[in-house]
Design a protein around this nucleic acid. Structure first.
Length: 488
RNA sequence: GGCCCGUUCGUCUAGUGGACUAGGACACCGCCCUCUCAAGGCGGAGAUCACGGGUUCGAAUCCCGUACGGGCUACCA
């Protein structure tokens, strides 16, 4: 195959971009980039009830945030547009005309009620419950006459009787084979003139010159129908690759019940796009079974459909969180400061001006924080004490300040820090380390008392650095205040 | 009912007839480091490869069947 690779991601804007859709998008995108092909975005908005422009924009935003860029789409255009199905009506009309010309379709005058009744009967009898092909028996002249007379009708595909099994090579699963007898004379155009899904998809993929259709495996059984549409049009079908579904922790279809399912929700929780991308890539694909940290470039350079797994995967948010922590720790310090500032500004702890003025200070704080969090939203509780006055938590008070000797430890600490010449962590450390022995206390008891005094909690970034960043005046004031409520 | 897909540690996976006493990662447990929490280092536990038959000198890997889960079977997508 020498033609350039063209793949598409075709979401329905009936909701935001979900984890499952995002994974499909990632695989399509990675495949396109790997082969130097085009990644096209097509919006399947034929369901007017549930499709909204807001959702389309949200999907576009989510893809952009993940760093999945498309070459053609509703927002950037392209040579095979339009890229919204609702705008492609003329294409479907042309395709129907082509099928009519080729004698590949026939009008069906059966009413919905009639069809429903037949379906019930067939189901009761057992076996195949498809359309009984009543209208296929109507002679072309009679049919044409009824159409001309304005009889309501849908158009059905004449599934050939002598075709043999529909066989295709799925790039993930291998050979797929469907008996032609089990495939219905599907409706391609409804009586209101709108195309059905399987027809629209085949027409779109054909006219957009899609070479590889990579999508969820809920479409496996649709594939033979679409192949029949291609054949009816006289067009070579693309290659297909079906991805298994992503499930929630309970092994059921991923849904709101499982908590966050949209890409935007993960963004808002402080996940990094590169971490989500990495996680999604690994959910059903592996580089070699060993490598887990896979950046964008590595993914593009190595992605292959042959290594896509056939079984459904359960979404493991703990592993995603761990991965996010890895990316946070590996993030360049400057970049982390930017991310941290954004979060602090959202929390109202920092103004844009301060972010600029205190850049050096923030750069010093960054590594203390980045090493301790897995999500960006953990920044705020961890460093709040540096930006605002904090009350000592009750349980911290009970566990640390209510211990014998806490008061003298704090008083001594305040004294030692007051007389310090240079307010730097190493000097602070030297001063505080001398205390435990002199007071006959364990180092941990002294340090925890100081920690609680300045942060209000028993857990914080490293103590000496925290003291330095807090500043002498505030640090000593807090230690003295804590001493007043501590036990002897 | 019919057609189709799937089934390896709790989870994601490696594995394509012999290197498998089934490897890696997350989670879990222990130890070390240590001012807390993390991070990091070291180690541990965890999979009768869904089950049952076969093929073969030899099967997680090939074939058949069963069970369980899932999809399609719409003038939904």
């Amino acid at each position: 195959m020498t033609e350039p690779v063209r793949v598409r991601f075709a979401p329905s804007p009936t909701g935001h971009l979900h984890i499952g859709g995002a994974r499909t998008a990632v695989y399509n995108w990675a495949f396109a980039r790997r082969h130097g092909g085009a990644f096209v975005l097509r919006i399947e908005d034929t369901d007017p009830e549930r499709s909204t422009e807001e959702n389309t924009q949200a999907i576009l935003r989510s893809l952009a945030w993940l760093g999945i860029d498309h070459d053609e789409g509703p927002d950037v255009g392209g040579p095979y547009g339009p890229y919204r199905q609702t705008e492609r009506a003329p294409l479907y009309r042309d395709a129907l005309a082509l099928l009519q010309e080729r004698g590949a379709v026939y009008p069906c005058f059966c009413s919905a009620e009639e069809l429903e009744r037949k379906r019930q009967e067939a189901r009761a009898r057992g076996g195949f419950a498809g359309y009984d092909k009543t209208c296929r028996a109507i002679s072309p002249t009679d049919a044409a006459a009824r159409v001309a007379a304005g009889d309501p009708h849908a158009w059905r595909l004449k599934v050939p009787f002598d075709r043999g099994d529909v066989v295709f090579e799925d790039l993930v699963r291998g050979e797929m084979r469907f008996p032609i007898s089990a495939i219905d004379d599907l409706i391609v155009v409804r009586s209101d003139g709108t195309p059905t899904y399987n027809f629209a998809v085949a027409v779109d993929d054909a006219t957009m010159r899609i070479t590889h259709v990579i999508r969820g495996d809920d479409h496996i059984s649709n594939t033979p129908k679409q192949i029949l549409v291609y054949e009816a049009m006289g067009v070579e079908p693309p290659a297909f690759a079906h991805l298994s579904m992503i499930w929630g922790p309970d092994g059921k279809r991923l849904s709101k019940r499982h908590g966050a399912t949209s890409v935007e929700a993960y963004r808002d929780m402080g996940y990094l796009p590169e971490a989500l991308l990495n996680y999604l890539a690994l959910l059903g694909w592996s580089l070699d079974g060993e490598t887990t940290i896979i950046d964008r470039e590595t993914l593009i350079a190595n992605f292959s459909l042959e290594r896509v797994s056939r079984n459904p995967a359960i979404f493991d948010s703990e592993k995603l969180e761990w991965l996010n922590g890895v990316y946070i720790r590996e993030m360049p310090r400057e970049q982390f400061v930017d991310r941290m500032c954004a979060v602090l500004q959202d929390a109202g702890l920092l103004s844009p001006d301060e972010a600029k003025e205190r850049r050096e200070w923030l750069l010093a704080l960054a590594p203390l924080v980045s090493e301790r969090i897995k999500r960006l939203d953990e920044v705020v509780p961890m460093v709040r004490f540096l930006f605002a006055e904090v009350a000592v938590e009750e349980k911290a008070k009970d566990a640390v300040l209510a211990v014998a000797g806490a008061r003298s430890a704090l008083e001594e600490a305040a004294r030692a820090l007051e007389s310090l010449e240079a307010w730097q962590s190493d000097a602070i450390e030297a001063a505080l380390r001398a205390l435990p022995e002199r007071l006959g206390m364990k180092p941990k008891a002294v340090f925890q008392a100081v920690r609680v005094a300045i942060t209000g909690t028993t857990v914080s970034p490293p103590l000496f650095e925290s003291l330095e960043l807090l500043g002498r005046e505030r640090a000593i004031a807090r230690i003295e205040a804590a001493a007043r409520v501590a036990s002897d």
